[in-house]
Amino acid sequence: MIHVKNLSKTFTVNEKEPGLKGSFKSLFKRKVITKYALNNINFDIHEGEIVGLIGANGAGKTTLSKILSGIIHPSSGEISVLGTDPWKREINFRKKMSLIMGQKASLWWDLPALDCYLLLKEIYQINDEDYHTRLNFLAETLGIKDQLKVQIRRLSLGERMKVELIAALLHNPQVVFLDEPTIGLDLTAQKAVRKFLLDYRRQFNPCMILTSHYMEDIEELCERIIILKEGSIVYDGPLKDIIAKYANEKQIILTLMNGDIIKERAPRDGIGERISALLKSHDVLDLSVTEIEISEIIEKILRQGVMA
């Protein structure tokens, strides 16, 4: 469904010296720097997959989403989304994809959501029956039916995200780009959005690419992750494999009789010995062994740049 080969993207940025002198100087001459936002990226994504794009700020996640959705032009490389080059921005391609921008409204703020949806109905040429069926399903699943007649600017952040989600999925897209869909939402709203996305995926089986800084989003939604560091892929594979591959330790948590809690890490192959030693030296009420948090492993990969 998505094929990316040797994709690179460079940007030029102007550099200005600080201070008033620098400002005057920049009126006549500016230093232009070329930066790699993406460097030789390769991957394929298939129907029904939800892939998480992970990386620090400036790693190239959003640039990648923008290129795949046809917003910006790649500097070099080969891209095919739904069998077409997204940069050509063909109408048929745009009818089958969607981009949800958590930090950017795509609807018209002065109008109620229902008015915006009527316009989208014409833009996507959705027939009356499909429009009503999908709108009812999406609004009911997200629990936002009562807010659809309210001006969008008057909705809360969580409600706005929900009406944006409906707008993005009303035409039943085959490829969905989700850029920080839960940013700024409270925990309940985050959970609702995640549950909704899973339900939606189960029912319609689209290919989804998710960019998020919230590890809960990634852990709950994605089976596969792509980790980007400074424009290059440092890991591409199943989320569960990342633990086996990069977490060579496990965490032991002991609750002692006196109420104290001890947390300790031990190598995977030496976990039994370490537990025996701890049981001998302490009066233990409870014991548990857990995997190290995925966010910590990813942080380690980003810090050390482990190659896949």
Binding site: R94, M97, K104, S106
Partner: peptide
């Protein structure tokens, strides 16, 4: 401010 994005995404 990137408002153009939505018009690029919509098929119009």
């Amino acid at each position: 401010d990137g408002g153009l994005n939505k018009y690029i995404i919509y098929p119009l």
